[in-house]
Each structure stands twice: as structure tokens, then as C-alpha cells.
């Protein structure tokens, strides 16, 4: 059976792609962010995943408002990155895991999560940058991938409670796959930030740190909040923390915190990073 090793959660902003393309990892502005990653590389060396299931939100590359799925799962043999409007160099294609994708789709729909299934799917910076940050030296991402996209563009968004349940069902679906694959879950989004409106630039360090801690000891903590509560506390795009929540929910049982980093700001965003290993 497939084994879930743990989860890695990280923030994403397009500017990380520009920093990587320009080799700015040691630039004083970027160093506190990139310095968070070597312990994650060590952990990946130790656990050796075959597959990464990446929970992320699309920013208007693959999905437009003409059709906006709440939950979408990729089922392609490969996924292309593409220009998102800024001309940042694109990253090479990602290898899919279509058989595992279809198993996940079948199991999630059976459990009453009515998904959109994507046999073609462009993946944006929220998908590509975490993988590049985790495997910086590989030209091609060395693991197979399954994209799981959660709508954070157009309300109503799925609630934290619903994302927790989806994550839990996703983890159970993966664990029931009859193949000895080693799987890591990646959650890409957040933490607090707000790009739009007169409150642009808003961040909330205390809330972010409380949320990060909650994932270890009390993972349902944030499900007490509505998405509007989360926007109030973490900013309009802070609601992307739903990716972290679904990732944690996909991990079976208790977890051990292997590593965490938190830095303000990268671009307009509070950048969080955490590695959670499945205990036992």
C-alpha cells in the first residue's frame, strides 16, 4: 500500500520565481527565506518520496471565471508550467501519476467530494515554485506529481471545515492505493497577506504563528473560523492557508514537527514553511 511520509507546507509568490531565475538566493532580502529550505532537503533525502501530491490554488492561469471548480484534481501524464503574464522563465514540465490520480478521483467522489477532473492542466507558480524550492538542483522535478487545486479566487470558497474533510479523505484515498509508493503531501499558499484594497499590505504574525502551531497539536483549530473570519485575520489572500489545512488533514494520525521557518516579508507576503512527519 502507498505510504504517506509527511507534509511540507510553504508560501508561494511569483517573485520567488524571479529570485530563482536571477540567482538571488543569497541576496540579503531573500536569504532569510531561502535559508529555510536546506533542512527540508535533508528530510527529503531521508524519506525519499516517489510522488508529491500538491495542494495549491490557481491564480488565473488554468482556470478562469467562466468555469471555476471548487476542488480540481489533475489526471494527466504531464503538466506544463506557462507564462502567467509577467514573462518570468517557465519551469520544465512535471511528470504526472495518472493511475494514482484516478484512484484519488474515484475515492473522493465515492466519499461525496464532487470534483472537477483535469486531463489537461497548466500549473502556475503555486504548484511549480514549491517543487523547485524542494528540489533546486534537479532540472526536472524528480518525483511524480498529482495536482489538487482549491478555489480561492471566487466566493463562495469551500470552508476550512470542508477543506479539512477533503484533506482527510484525500489522505485515506492515497493510503488505500495498492502500490508501495512513498508519498509526500505539499501544501502551497498563505500565510497572511493582502494584495488588494485599502488594507493592502496587511499581515498578521501572531495569527500565522498560532495557526502553524495548531497544525501540530490541534489541527482542527482553524475550522472554527469562516472564510470571512480568516480574511479578516489573515488578509484576502491569507485564506490560502486552506492549502496548509488540507495538507495536515491528509496526514494520518499525530505528526511531529521536523522543521519550521517564518519570515516577513517576501514581496507582500508573510512566508511560512513547515515540515510535518507522520509519527509512527
Amino acid at each position: 500500500m502507498a505510504k504517506i511520509l509527511g507534509g511540507i507546507t510553504t508560501s508561494h509568490v511569483p517573485a520567488i520565481g524571479r529570485a530563482i531565475a536571477g540567482n538571488l538566493q543569497n541576496d540579503p532580502y531573500w536569504k532569510p527565506f531561502f535559508d529555510g529550505f536546506p533542512p527540508v532537503h535533508d528530510w527529503l533525502q531521508k524519506v525519499r518520496p516517489d510522488v508529491a501530491v500538491v495542494i495549491y490554488n490557481d491564480h488565473g492561469l488554468n482556470f478562469f471565471l467562466d468555469k471555476m471548480p471548487t476542488f480540481a484534481v489533475g489526471a494527466a501524464a504531464s503538466y506544463q508550467n506557462a507564462d502567467e503574464g509577467w514573462g518570468i522563465p517557465t519551469l520544465p514540465p512535471y511528470t504526472g501519476a495518472p493511475e494514482l490520480s484516478w484512484h484519488i478521483i474515484n475515492e473522493l467522489v465515492e466519499r461525496e467530494f464532487d470534483l472537477t477532473t483535469c486531463q489537461e492542466m497548466l500549473v502556475d507558480h503555486a504548484f511549480s515554485l514549491p517543487l523547485k524550492l524542494l528540489w533546486p538542483d534537479d532540472e526536472y522535478c524528480p518525483v511524480h506529481t498529482v495536482p489538487v487545486c482549491i478555489n480561492t479566487v471566487q466566493y463562495p470558497l469551500p470552508s476550512a471545515r470542508r477543506c479539512y474533510k477533503m484533506g482527510k479523505a484525500l489522505g485515506e484515498a492515497i493510503a488505500s492505493w495498492d502500490d508501495d509508493l512513498r508519498v509526500v503531501i505539499i501544501g502551497s499558499g498563505g500565510l497572511s497577506h493582502q494584495l488588494d484594497g485599502e488594507r493592502a499590505g496587511f499581515m498578521n504574525k501572531n495569527f500565522d504563528l498560532a495557526f502553524m502551531e495548531s497544525l501540530i497539536a490541534d489541527p482542527k483549530w482553524v475550522t472554527q473560523y469562516s472564510n470571512e473570519d480568516i480574511v479578516e485575520k489573515a488578509g484576502t489572500q491569507g485564506v490560502e492557508l486552506l492549502m496548509w489545512l488540507a495538507t495536515r488533514a491528509a496526514l494520518p494520525g499525530p505528526v511531529r514537527k521536523v522543521h519550521a521557518n517564518y519570515h516577513i516579508p517576501i514581496s507582500n507576503t508573510a512566508a511560512g514553511l513547515m515540515v510535518m512527519e507522520v509519527a509512527g
Binding site: 479566487v153 488588494d196 484576502t236
Partner: peptide, 20 residues
């Protein structure tokens, strides 16, 4: 919507700090 408007900002050479 800010996710789409960001692509317009890109044409103008503005980053998210300019927008902020």
C-alpha cells in the same frame, strides 16, 4: 479580481508593492 489584475500590472511593469 486581483489575481487577474496582476497580469495587467505586469504589462505596466508594476509589482505588488507598486499596487499596494
Amino acid at each position: 479580481n486581483v489575481y487577474y489584475l496582476a497580469k495587467f500590472a505586469g504589462i505596466l511593469g508594476l509589482d505588488v508593492q507598486d499596487l499596494g
